[in-house]
């Protein structure tokens, strides 16, 4: 651990030295520091390892949602993907509370299966990887609207799903590590910009 990242003991010590005797605020910093740490520990302990029960999507739809999230931001050599990051849970929760997401995402998933069925005779998850890619390539780019204006709702669906998947991945522990964000700490001194060529 970087020496500038204060240990809990250092923080408590530094807080004490700043506290004037008799201040109304005397108790606050110490208790606050304790509180912040306890809160984090409690919430971490409370995070369940159990199987997530979808709140909005039916079981089959949820499977499809998971597959799409995993395709949008897959695991690779550097990190896990959107499914491990809990993006489907996040999207399901928000969708259960938002009528617009229900229309766009719920409708989009149904449309995707029926479009695959029309074209390949199977629902999306039963299609071959090549067929799945061919279908997604149709709906993953706005430029396809030039030839296929009737695809606008599907392109809207995929654009929203892509953004929500990015939300779910990059707000997760593995997503944050993947980006290399290293803050949210108690630091006694802010070191500013490290030496970087061109900056």
């Amino acid at each position: 651990m970087d020496k500038n990242f204060a240990s809990r003991r250092d923080i408590l010590k530094s807080l004490c030295t700043g506290v004037a005797v008799g201040s109304v605020l005397q108790a606050i910093p110490l208790e606050a520091a304790e509180y912040a740490h306890r809160l984090i520990a409690e919430e971490k302990a409370a995070s369940p390892n159990a199987q997530y029960m979808p709140k909005y999507f039916a079981a089959e739809q949820y499977k499809l949602l998971c597959a799409l999230c995993g395709t949008i931001l897959p695991g690779d050599a550097d990190s896990g993907g959107a499914v491990e990051a809990g993006a489907p849970e996040y999207i399901d929760l928000l969708t259960s509370e938002n009528a617009e997401y229900q229309r766009v995402l719920g409708g989009g998933l149904i449309w995707l299966d029926s479009a695959c069925d029309d074209r390949y005779g199977h629902a999306y998850l039963e299609c071959t990887p090549q067929q799945q890619a061919e279908m997604l390539d149709q709906i993953a780019y706005r430029k396809n609207l030039e030839h296929n204006p009737e695809m606008s709702h599907a392109i809207e669906f995929f654009a929203l799903l892509r953004k929500l998947t990015a939300d779910g991945f990059f707000t997760s522990k593995i997503g944050i590590e993947y980006l290399g964000y290293v803050g949210n700490a108690y630091v006694l001194k802010f070191e500013g910009c490290p030496p970087v060529p061109g900056v």
Binding site: L25, P29, G183, N184, A185, Y186, V187, F190
Partner: peptide, 9 residues
């Protein structure tokens, strides 16, 4: 005044 310095979060 009894308030600690910023911890830069």
């Amino acid at each position: 005044n009894g308030r600690p310095a910023c911890h830069y979060c």
